[in-house]
Write a protein that binds this DNA or RNA. Structure first.
Lengths: 252, 252
DNA sequence: GTAATTAGTGTAATAGTTACACTTTGTGAA
DNA sequence: TTCACAAAGTGTAACTATTACACTAATTAC
């Protein structure tokens, strides 16, 4: 009771102190994005519990008593995929009164980006089953998960233009075409090939590895890697602004 | 007990169900910005309660049981200032384990923008006393309020370049110089007068009222107003990008 | 060796950004 | 009434970034 009564001392005396200590729970949801050469995917779990048992939903879990929020989000990811050390971003907190049928639940939404090749489904208490879904399949989710998903995808769209986070979704060595397809998938528009290459190379943080793609039935592409150190030196203070013309974009 | 036990059914069975229902509280903080002709200000309250009694802190309060998060943030603002219908934005949620000395407290941080002239200190249960502070005075705040403040100010800096929110801080009729000073205060850099005017006028959502400033001991400036409808029509889909050269900015 | 497939490349027109300094219009004091 | 003061208001040329656009090169599979 000690914690409770102390918190209540700090509360407004206009209200009954107990009003501020109602039954509630808080959770994190972590929207996990992956990219598989062609499409942007999201990892959904099949719920093993009521409510909405057996429906596909965003992965999430309660935050433990002695656990920070970011840690909880990382734990959800790690338990589900075994992947650690990823790009993680807190997006928005959802706490409408009626959003959970069983009571007041506040959910802090994160997204994270992983290399889909690193993914290996783990036996996990969080989910019965997990699977990658195309973005277009992500609708009709339970709770307010459609809204949460939209907020996270939206944030990703904004961030991709200002931070070098695309590389988190690609293997360490990638071709410029793969990178372009990734940008196109996130931004949901086709980009002009020459302008894309000119722009991204002019930013000067990609290193040409002088290696060629193998095992493709056409002219092999050069492989590049992202130079994080160089990025830091060049852009740490000012940041960048990636904006390339979609193909056949009409001028006003 | 009904709510509690139902939520607990939905929880992971790997953990003791009660672990997910520990003693906790959640609050909103609302960082209230105002602009007084020259400087950007923040409204701080003098805490009337332990911990940190009598220290200046960010305004905040518990979220009530039947209250949405945004509503709670608006309530904090209204109780403190009487101002309603403002620009409000959720910024980030803070929930580190040790951030509150009395127990686990999750805080959802918002900022809001008000016209300082509308402000009138209300008798309020939230604060003993409230006062505007210059940005440079906002440091050494209790809890992790320095970090919360930084996150909100940062967000404001980003948003001012992409949304027409500056007008929320100015009277309905304002001069271009006032507007420029506001941008300078938020961005923390001096801007070039001619470039600023050219850019903001070219955006085509300011209306020249054909009225002049009164009561100044120099050439009076023209008054403008922001045309919200026109803004919507022009920018609803694409948004804008406000970026004007600081004065004497050196090129690389 | 030829068809299929994707990689890779340059330029001119246009649009946007930047740097920069003097004239105008009002007030208020002598 | 005029002069000092203060801030308002204004244009342009140089530079930089963005856009639109189509063919040749390299490889594999048959």
């Amino acid at each position: 009771m000690e914690v409770k009564s102390n918190i209540l001392e700090a509360t407004s005396n206009k209200n009954n102190a107990f009003d501020n200590f109602f039954k509630s729970a808080f959770t994190v949801d972590n929207i996990i994005f992956g990219f598989d050469e062609a499409d942007l995917k999201v990892l959904l779990i099949k719920r093993g519990e009521i409510p909405y048992e057996n429906q596909w939903a965003l992965p999430g879990n309660f935050v433990y008593q002695d656990e920070n929020l970011d840690t909880a989000a990382k734990r959800v990811l790690a338990e589900l995929t075994g992947v650690k050390n990823v790009h993680l971003e807190q997006v928005k907190t959802f706490g409408s009164v009626g959003r959970h049928p069983f009571g007041r639940v506040i959910t802090i939404a994160y997204y994270s980006l992983i290399k889909i090749s690193d993914y290996r489904l783990h036996v996990s208490s969080i989910a019965q089953e997990a699977a990658w879904h195309s973005l277009s399949d992500v609708k009709g989710l339970p709770f307010d998960h459609d809204e949460i998903f939209a907020a996270c995808f939206n944030r990703l769209k904004l961030n991709i233009k200002r931070q070098p986070i695309g590389f988190e979704l690609l293997p360490p060595k990638f071709t410029l075409t793969q990178l372009q397809h990734l940008y196109e998938a996130i931004l949901e528009e086709k980009l002009d090939k020459r302008n894309f290459r000119k722009k991204i190379l002019s930013m000067d943080f990609l290193i040409d590895l002088n290696e060629l793609q193998e095992g493709v039935a056409h002219r092999p592409a050069k492989l590049f890697k992202f130079d994080k150190e160089r990025y830091r030196r060049l852009y740490e203070e000012e940041g960048f602004h990636f904006d390339v013309a979609p193909t056949k974009h009409k001028k006003k």
